[in-house]
Simulated assay, not measured.
Amino acid sequence: MDSQHFLGFFLLIFLQSCLVSADINGSVLKMKTGTSSVPFDPTHVTQLSWRPRAFIYKGFLSSDECDHLITLAKDKLEKSMVADNESGKSVESEVRTSSGMFLQKAQDEVVADIEARIAAWTFLPVENGESIQILHYEHGQKYEPHFDYFHDKANQQLGGHRIATVLMYLSDVESGGETVFPNAEGRLSQVQDESWSACAKNGFAVKPRKGDALLFFSLHPDATTDTASLHGSCPVIKGEKWSATKWIHVRSFDRSKRLNRRAAIGECVDENENCAGWAKAGECEKNPTYMVGSRGSPGFCRKSCKVCS
């Protein structure tokens, strides 16, 4: 995604935040995104920070939706992993001590509706998102501060960097479990009383509230990585924490995975039924970005352009 597209995208986010801040006396935009009774309502969104860009949506999920996601995950949890900075492979680490699992995309009607609602909120297509990950934190479990963008090339080729993260809280936590941003501009000005954990006081923090969702961006509008997006999950002191994470990439994550699978089995195909005609018309040379692509972002007509076999 080039800087022009990023600027346009963040202009939409800015307009959304202006709508949230305005005094609206008439009707508001309520967009039905599926069969769920929960509409998308931008007036529920509050800007938390510009560095990093972070927003909270109060009541993004209904209580029933939260419980449903927990039920889907409860019997399938495994120890959470992290991406190795060199190889990009998933490895165990004491940096992250929770347990979790990934749902399937559009696994059922409820999941599909939540994914559509996320796309409506972020202005990023469903296909750019990874599957929702459900996480469970018990007493003392946490995730040390980290970045959601990648340091390795292997993961960057799967849809590019993660541009945005939507973190949905599926349960209340009696004490601890806050999401903390140690590098956020508001870390020194946020008012925190004794109800906040010591970990939360190390940065700008957000308390987990059942049904709320936190959206933050890991990249600047010019597509460079934002070090202010460093974030972590504070240890749970009392109770337990359930959350659901949706990571969203700058390009189609679904298409990247599909192309990788095809490459692994040696399959060479076109992604558009018009590719053959376009290739005959010379589009492989005239429009190589779309037709052929690059190493990190394969084109849509590689077979017709004869760059794979």
Rank of each mutant, 00 (worst) to 15 (best):
V95P: 01
E127T: 06
E109P: 07
C66N: 09
G140R: 05
D64H: 10
E92N: 12
V95T: 15
Y169V: 13
R96V: 12
W50N: 10
E65P: 02
K76L: 05
G176P: 03
E109G: 15
I114Q: 08
H68F: 05
D172F: 10
F60P: 07
E65W: 05
Q104C: 04
K142P: 00
A54K: 11
D172S: 05
L124A: 02
K89D: 12
V91Q: 10
I163Y: 01
H161A: 01
H139S: 10
E78H: 10
E127F: 09
F123M: 11
I132T: 08
I134N: 03
Y143I: 03
E144P: 00
H136I: 05
T165E: 05
I56N: 10
S131L: 00
D152S: 05
G140P: 06
S131F: 01
G140I: 06
L77A: 02
G160I: 01
S93V: 14
E178S: 06
L135K: 03
I118W: 01
V111I: 15
I132H: 04
A154G: 06
E109I: 13
W50Y: 12
H146P: 11
V173L: 06
R53E: 02
V82H: 06
T122D: 00
D108W: 13
S63T: 14
D148R: 09
H136K: 14
S98L: 10
A154M: 13
Y143T: 08
S87D: 08
S175C: 00
I132E: 00
D75N: 15
I70C: 13
E138Q: 13
S63G: 01
D148C: 05
S49C: 10
L69N: 12
S93K: 15
L72R: 15
T122K: 07
Y137F: 10
E86G: 00
T122W: 08
G140M: 09
K74L: 09
F102Q: 05
M81V: 08
L69G: 07
K105Y: 07
G100E: 01
F60N: 06
Y143D: 00
A54H: 11
D152V: 07
G100W: 05
R53Y: 13
V91I: 15
G88M: 08
S80A: 15
P52C: 08
F150D: 05
E78F: 06
I134H: 05
R162N: 04
N85H: 07
E86C: 00
E138I: 01
V95G: 11
H139N: 14
D152F: 04
Y57F: 13
R117P: 04
Q107L: 07
T122P: 04
I134D: 02
P145T: 01
K89S: 06
E94L: 12
E130T: 10
A154F: 13
G140H: 07
Q157N: 11
Q156E: 14
A83W: 08
Q156V: 04
